[in-house]
Design a protein around this nucleic acid. Structure first.
Lengths: 344, 344
DNA sequence: CACGGTCTTTGAAATGTTTCAATGACGGTT
DNA sequence: AACCGTCATTGAAACATTTCAAAGACCGTG
């Protein structure tokens, strides 16, 4: 029985008594081969347990059947939701999705990109550590279909899909202001992350346009966007003099908000009565928190799906035009900012 | 400039004025080629922007450079931690990791496995929907290195890596009993999942061996292991007659526990005073919950790492023996079961 | 019965690598 | 000057597929 080797089209052809080209036709254009031989070939395949060798196929056909997503941070569920969206789109297009994780390390990201290039994947989706990194230009120069997810690049040298983060900042703070808060903290960092910068910018814009004193929007910087940093920000918040202490906090993402929530409750504060909290992303765990978290919702799966469609367009449509898609975020109000009678 | 085509070894050879075999040597056994020509070839590669075609390499060399993990449920962070562990091991072995997600659907799992077979990946790690599924046998028969993660298969037809779930159930309930609870709920399901079954079994064993009435260990079945199901179990719990209502709950995983916690707090219960809660897995969000969750910790990354090592051994070591590795779980006590004076 | 047309099947080339036996170059030793 | 050994390079075959021009088979028509 083929002495162990895994059977090739040649073996199938021999078993079915046809030429090797015919076997290939059965797989790639079944309509061209007569019903009788097709059936014979298919039976031979089943009997031998034939599995097409994708490397050989790709080598000869010159086209890969996989997409890749390089995600930024595997510990943040947000990116998995994006990946899920991409996966659905890939499934529809009958492609495989290769998921990599750079863990926010530029070096790792580069290794992954290099591998993907070697693999000749059909397109790359990426949430980069640094959208301006030169190795991304490199991809563009090479002509690899590329879409930046949840970030944007200066020049429109490639497609990107993102959310209007300035607007996100505005609606979060507007919501807090409506609840009567007059001193609000913004928690997030480092500011070098575009997202953080823009959410803060939106927050400041609306705050001032509502006639509040810029001094009353307090920026508490963090080193990263993690639960632990949220806790530590909570401690710093608690350490502020009572008359300077904010009654509400807007966190640059939900992980921070969850950390802050935990620390606050642990310290005996009531949420939202003593401290109202707004997060960003609206990950599943935001709704599942002890005090369900108000959050600025990003259409996470939609983001992924749209990105996949763009990359496919670039890969297949000869007169593709790069686009910078922008989605609108939307506020999901929950208990962590619930309205109540507020002492003035 | 090569009129658009991406350069091949042939182009590099021409540019460097050497034979094509020499270029290959530079990549695969640099020690055999003289320093001068090696340098010349490397310069040519850099100038042309040569990237090795992995399909061709794999086709000829007959060996793939990637591992694959088919995860069961992308919405559960537990599996991402496992994946992370695999990724580290793969990184050490200089391999790529292909991550797929079956979303608990057997059909999707099968599609993924088929693709991976076509890709001729070096080995497959999987947390299967059903460990007894025939398509897994198929893989074994084909001789694909295979490791089952976080489940076990009856016969030792392949390697597996798991945690002692019976023990996990025992230590969870033992802990609750030590805190003085005399009526405890077990929340989880469906029981057809091996994990659930064994954790329940462990719970019952220790409960009875401590001299408690089996009737006082109340089984509240759920349809799945999600946050939403946890909430719904909480409602059922609240609906029980006061004299039958448990003072503690052991949940088959952390998602359930998080849902239960949220529902309970929302309903005005104090945790742990009115209801103590133990989860399972110890995902990051367990510690980050409003009331930090006591949980039975699985060594998640270790699980992945060990699984990767097994699959590599099977792939490379000719006298590999299948092993069923079992890790010990360990209780991480947090506020959700904190000791307090208990009314008897 | 020759011709033309349609529908199937075939055979060979091509894809980009790796591998390995064979060749070549170069010094040093007799 | 002939010979030998070492070290570096070369050339061709092989891997499993796809593609496409060309050949064959079959049938009806004139």
């Amino acid at each position: 029985m083929l002495n162990g080797r895994t059977p090739s089209v040649k073996d199938v052809a021999a078993a079915a008594g046809v030429s090797l080209g015919t076997v290939s036709n059965v797989m790639n254009r079944p309509e061209v081969v007569s019903a009788r031989t097709r059936e014979r070939v298919e039976r031979a395949m089943a009997e031998l347990g034939f599995v097409r060798n994708e490397s050989a196929r790709q080598l000869r056909a010159g086209t890969s059947r996989t997409l890749a997503y390089v995600m930024l941070d595997g510990t943040n569920p947000f990116f998995h939701d994006v990946a899920q969206g991409i996966e659905f789109a890939a499934e529809d297009a009958d492609l495989s999705l290769f998921i990599c994780n750079s863990n926010s390390r530029a070096a790792r990201e580069e290794v992954h990109l290099d591998r993907l290039l070697q693999q000749r994947v059909q397109g790359i989706l990426i949430t980069p550590v640094d959208p301006a990194a030169p190795h991304l230009d490199e991809l563009v120069r090479r002509g690899v279909p590329l879409v930046i997810v949840d970030r944007v690049r200066g020049a429109d040298s490639c497609c990107s899909v993102a959310v209007d983060d300035v607007l996100g900042g505005r609606i979060a703070v507007e919501h807090l202001a409506e609840q009567g808060h007059t001193r609000v903290a913004f928690i997030g960092g480092p500011e070098s992350i575009g997202q953080v910068h823009e959410r803060l910018q939106g927050a400041r814009e609306i705050w001032e346009s509502l006639g509040h004193d810029p001094e009353d929007l307090i920026y508490l910087p963090t080193d990263s966007l993690s639960v632990a940093e949220g806790r530590s920000a909570g401690e710093r918040l608690a350490g502020l003099a009572a008359r300077r202490r904010p009654t509400a906090a807007f966190c640059a993402n939900d992980l921070l908000a969850l950390g802050l929530l935990q620390q606050s409750i642990g310290a005996g504060l009531r949420v939202p009565d003593d401290l109202a909290i707004v997060g960003f992303d609206d990950i599943e765990f935001a709704a599942a928190a002890a005090v369900p978290l108000t959050s600025v919702r990003q259409p996470r799966q939609e983001l992924g799906r749209a990105a996949a469609q763009l990359v496919l367009d670039e890969a297949t449509n000869p007169n593709h035009r790069h686009q910078q898609l922008q989605f609108q975020p939307e506020l999901v109000a929950r208990a962590s900012t619930a309205t109540r009678a507020r002492a003035l």
